[in-house]
């Protein structure tokens, strides 16, 4: 029932509604719908990290089938990824992914990439087709290494 905890599954922890909408678009494009779950919004990137630390680390340690995506805004800060990675225990780092717009998803929308759901769909399409059409966008290309990890570790059980 719900997400099948006995199979590999991914929980998405979005920073705000815009990121949640992007995740919805991604979710609509995958085949194994029940292997992904978008959680309630964190209400800010620091709250996402706090929530991850307090609620999810112990659950991930108890369940090796669990993967997590922290969907946060980078707000133009180059050290945002390092700050996020700092709260992820090394033993879990291969199952946690930190992704997000370089500034805010609003900028992606403003850049003519369509609605938030359309952006999420395009991200899934890139995963499905092995392309980087949207992931190469100026506001997303900083995710390259995380995208590669995601594509290798998570996409296979969502496709």
């Amino acid at each position: 029932m719900s997400v099948n905890r006995n199979k590999p599954h991914v929980l998405v922890l979005p920073e705000d509604d815009a990121n949640s909408d992007v995740a919805n678009g991604f979710h609509l494009e995958i085949h194994q719908v029940r292997q992904m779950q978008v959680l309630p919004v964190g209400g800010g990137w620091t709250k996402v990290l706090n929530c991850f630390e307090t609620d999810h680390i112990c659950k991930m340690e108890a369940n090796p089938n669990r993967f997590m995506i922290l969907l946060i805004d980078f707000d133009g800060h180059e050290d945002r990824l390092d700050q996020a990675m700092a709260v992820i225990p090394t033993r879990l780092s291969d199952r946690v992914f930190v992704l997000g717009a370089w500034t805010k998803p609003e900028k992606l929308k403003g850049a003519g990439l369509g609605s938030y759901e359309a952006i999420g769909r395009a991200m899934a399409k890139d995963c499905r087709e092995g392309t980087r059409t949207i992931w190469e966008h100026d506001l997303l290309r900083h995710n390259a290494s995380e995208f590669d990890r995601l594509h290798n570790r998570v996409w296979p059980f969502l496709a």
Binding site: M1, S2, V3, N24, H27, L28, V33, R34, Q37, V38
Partner: peptide, 18 residues
Amino acid sequence: LALDEVGHFVLALRQAFQ
């Protein structure tokens, strides 16, 4: 529906009507 089923239920419908 149970709380953990609501999202999947809605998403299945949304996806099917795409």
